[in-house]
Nucleic acid binder design. Structure first.
Lengths: 149, 149
DNA sequence: TTATTTGCAAAGCGTTTGCCAGCCC
DNA sequence: GGGCTGGCAAACGCTTTGCAAATAA
């Protein structure tokens, strides 16, 4: 399999290699697409972006790769309530998402107070927190006209 | 349609009636099942419980009722990450869920600090918060008694 | 070489829906 | 009576999978 343009390996490509994954052309491209995405694409969208680079990639392979990448912890899956999984490269940080219910835009944020509160709550209920997930759904506050208030 | 035992109308039954819904036998039973459930059953489970009261209820009807009830706001849908929707009667309070990753048990909680933090975050990002959703996944802390293990 | 990985199409799962009979108001 | 509702089975959207061919190591 020949990749049209041999870009330097993306972060995810390197992460795959480090874990000893067999680096097929498809995996390389999917990894690159994910590394280059700043948003939270669903599988179809990853497939679309990957296909734009090389048409010899099937949807099934994208699904398989996403699952694999998620299992080894190099990408993260999210559910924004629209029925399909959304993904992003796993960076080191803990963050949450605010979804604009009008545009679908996703804003990331993190907050120490929140983390502290959640950890405290879990402990108080008698649990060790293994994971958490917070989504805020909101509507952009209108900035009304001339007075840039 | 005859209900085997004519219990006094459940809270949800009354809520339906108040909104002028045509009260069929099936709806009455599904409403009752939900009102009597203290957990977060999925559709199959509601179907199972309803069928135990009257066998003449189809899964499609349960699905349709759940959607209807959710649309008029008398029940709430949740997603605990297991791929199917879970429901509970809508009470007035805001609460969140902690899911025991070992048993699937769901613990409800609410916390003013948390609400405050979330509202503040949304506003800070320039949004009015319309909704939120927080799930904590945890593992029960072992209480290491005199070898009760 | 040889165990993995891929593409394809079919299957799976939870959920929705078209259709017609049946029930509630 | 007349329209809303229910049952059935088929369809749906997303995701997974069985199998044979292709490929990385």
């Amino acid at each position: 399999m020949t990749t049209p343009e041999e870009a330097l390996p993306s972060r995810l490509e390197r992460a795959c290699a480090e874990r000893g994954l067999k680096m097929t052309g498809q995996r390389r491209i999917i990894a690159r697409v994910l590394s280059e995405s700043a948003d939270h694409p669903d599988v179809e969208e990853v497939y679309r972006r990957a296909s734009a680079i090389d048409t010899g990639i099937s949807l099934a392979t994208v699904y398989r790769s996403m699952r694999l990448f998620e299992e080894i912890g190099i990408i993260q899956r999210h559910d924004f309530g629209d029925g399909r999984a959304r993904y992003e490269e796993a960076r080191g940080d803990h963050h949450h998402h605010l979804i604009d219910i009008e545009t679908g835009e996703v804003v990331e944020f993190q907050d120490p107070d929140l983390e502290a509160a959640v950890t405290r709550i879990a402990r108080h209920l008698g649990f060790d927190m293994i994971g958490q997930r917070l989504e805020i759904f909101g509507r952009r506050i209108q900035r009304k006209g001339p007075e840039t208030a």
